[in-house]
Design a protein around this nucleic acid. Structure first.
Lengths: 365, 365
DNA sequence: TCCCGTGATGTAAACGTTTCCACCCTGACA
DNA sequence: TGTCAGGGTGGAAACGTTTACATCACGGGA
């Protein structure tokens, strides 16, 4: 059970030099005679020596690891984000210490504290956790990038990256209005969710621009699940005056809604246009393919990591807030393909874009 | 830039005791007078003291971290696996050091070596990397669980967990044959891929059982992508004698194939039955919903982690090999819903199962 | 010939913990 | 009153590195 691990001393002994020389030889620091160096490398090889990370971190004060703190490790969003962070991190020689946390009371604190001395920096996504909690449980000096944090985080001295929910929803709203729709239903996300709220605001803004009013009857509650989208769809069907278009605050709800419509024989997009948000992979495979707003998630991770690397390089700078773009993806479900915008729709067929996406992250940015 | 971090010494000074006492008080080891303990806790609180992980690891030889090594951090498989490992790990107080590696020559080695002194155990998925490479770059004593490794890994003294590809494919083959199909096409996966190979073997076994012969013309090459499934579908369409059923070695290919068939006006399942493997989330949303084989990925991660925990607890035992179940999921694409097996299909409607799945991992096992 | 710079190496301190050991004190027991 | 047990505490070693500093030999320039 006790690890009979070989340490630098063993290498030193075998190569008949001091540990200092071994360290120098292995790290290419300071002068070492070629002959000695050769002997040391051979000894290390023979003994299968691997330096002890913790010991090294202790003295160098560098772990070459960055922590990633996420509310839940679930689904495509998570894996995409990690992928974005990981590729950038690895390229720079960093590893990832990943930790999800559930909403259990003291859990965030516990996880945060566990990070001390194990990471050089932190990427945290904290929808619930306030900036104060973060700072209280973290060493003052730890570089930190907040993902989708509250807008006031900047004021607290945090640098963060947020998704441009507002811009994306605005684009979708404009698009639907541009297609001639006037009565547009909105399936909202969870009350407390910041993304959901921003998307609602973006949609409202589009309405305002066009001089349309938001009818309370056309704004339905949802919670980002397919099920809630399905329920909302049935509610819409029961309305005396049905909307000609529906904008769901995320793709899952849009899909649930689509099922409800289809069950009732309502055709999409002929009878009702439909738009979503997120561009989850399923979206391009359902029929009709879903018009949605793409969030470059992997890119989000990449940007966060790059910020951290910048901080490591010493250029601290003042806390910034960056917006990750959210771009409209026009597919079949909005009916643009039947109208004058057919070319735009054609330029993004569901199939070829699938293959594009496969390696998207590798060439992101 | 240098971290003005507060250490145990600062706490000791403030509480007017020795560092030894602070350590004892904070870890509840050895006797400390209540009054002193109180003073120490207050001091720690006031200074926002957080123990230094690396330093602690150095002396205790425990990092409370386990390494996860994956060939690629991409897609649903990855996130599900991580989720399975993470939930189990966190419950036991462990963190995850995640590292993907690309196929660059020395990269696996580099990543492996970086793990020394940073992890207490390792979960590795190594389709390409041989057992020898692993051992050569890892301390002898490090507990290791291999995911989907080669069957001979066990002989090398590794304990591993593999997906029951053979059993799953066998079940699918039996199912299709049971529905009366005699000419069944098989879309194979990548040549070198072990999973793909095992699935092929399972299918062949089902044919053998039924006294059917595998026609070379009905076995098409593929590489697990939608595109290759699409190509295979077109090849099948060009065949003089078309198969009445198609079994694709994974869902992505099945979906690509489905598109090819649909383009040609071939109806599924009326004109041709279709089966896949993996049960990726899209599968239940396409129309018709795809009959497939579900692999409990999160469960795979959970099992791996449990093995590791067992090893930490000291019960080393001989290297075992565990098989993670792969179960047949009957949906519409195989046509069972139209036949005598309608009840089985109904018991698994695409929608309710979606919601089931949402929290599947939390109650796995 | 002397001095000094420089390359090659070793010694030892330091990083922040945990833990073994020794010490002191108090009280109980003989 | 002496001894012993044991609670409470501090000193110091140890973990495996890196690195500042010291040492030494050697060679070149004055």
């Amino acid at each position: 059970m006790p690890s009979p691990s070989v340490s630098i001393k063993d290498v030193a002994k075998r190569a008949r030099v001091s540990v200092a020389t071994v360290s120098r030889a292995l790290n290419d620091k300071g002068p070492v005679k070629d002959e000695t160096k050769q002997r040391i490398l051979e000894a290390a090889e023979a003994l299968r020596y691997v330096p002890h990370g913790a010991a090294r971190s202790l003295i160098t004060n560098r772990t070459h690891t960055i922590g990633v703190l996420l509310p839940d490790v679930y689904g495509e969003f998570f894996s995409e984000l990690i992928r974005g962070i990981d590729t950038t991190a690895r390229r720079a020689g960093y590893h990832l210490l990943v930790s999800g946390f559930h909403s259990a009371p003291g859990e965030v604190e516990a996880v945060l504290r566990a990070m001390r001395g194990r990471v050089d920096g932190l990427v945290a996504m904290s929808p619930d956790v306030g900036p104060e909690t973060l700072r209280r449980n973290l060493p003052e000096s730890l570089p930190l990038v907040l993902l989708n944090g509250s807008p006031e985080a900047k004021a607290h001295g945090f640098t963060g990256i947020r998704i441009d929910n507002l811009g994306g929803a605005l684009a979708m709203g404009r698009h639907l209005i541009g297609l001639g729709h006037r009565a547009i239903a909105f399936l909202a996300g969870p009350e407390a969710n910041r993304d959901a709220e921003e998307r609602r605001r973006g949609f409202r803004e589009a309405l305002d621009e066009a001089g349309l009013v938001a009818l309370p009857a056309l704004e339905l509650a949802g919670d980002f699940t397919e099920e809630s989208g399905y329920r909302a769809g049935r509610e819409l069907l029961a309305l005396p005056l049905r909307p000609t278009a529906i904008f769901a605050a995320n793709d899952s709800m849009a899909i649930g809604c689509l099922l409800a419509l289809r069950e009732a024989g309502v055709r999409v997009p002929e009878d009702s246009a439909l738009g979503g948000f997120d561009d989850i992979p399923i979206s391009r495979f359902i029929s009709p393919p879903l018009t949605t707003v793409r969030v470059a998630i992997a890119d989000l991770g990449t940007r966060a990591m790059e910020r951290l690397l910048l901080a490591f390089a010493g250029s601290v700078g003042e806390p910034l807030e960056e917006l990750a773009p959210a771009t409209l993806i026009v597919r079949g479900s909005c009916g643009a393909g039947n109208g004058p915008e057919a070319t735009r729709a054609d330029s993004n067929p569901p199939f070829s874009s699938t293959f594009d996406r496969t390696r998207e992250g590798d060439r992101s940015r």
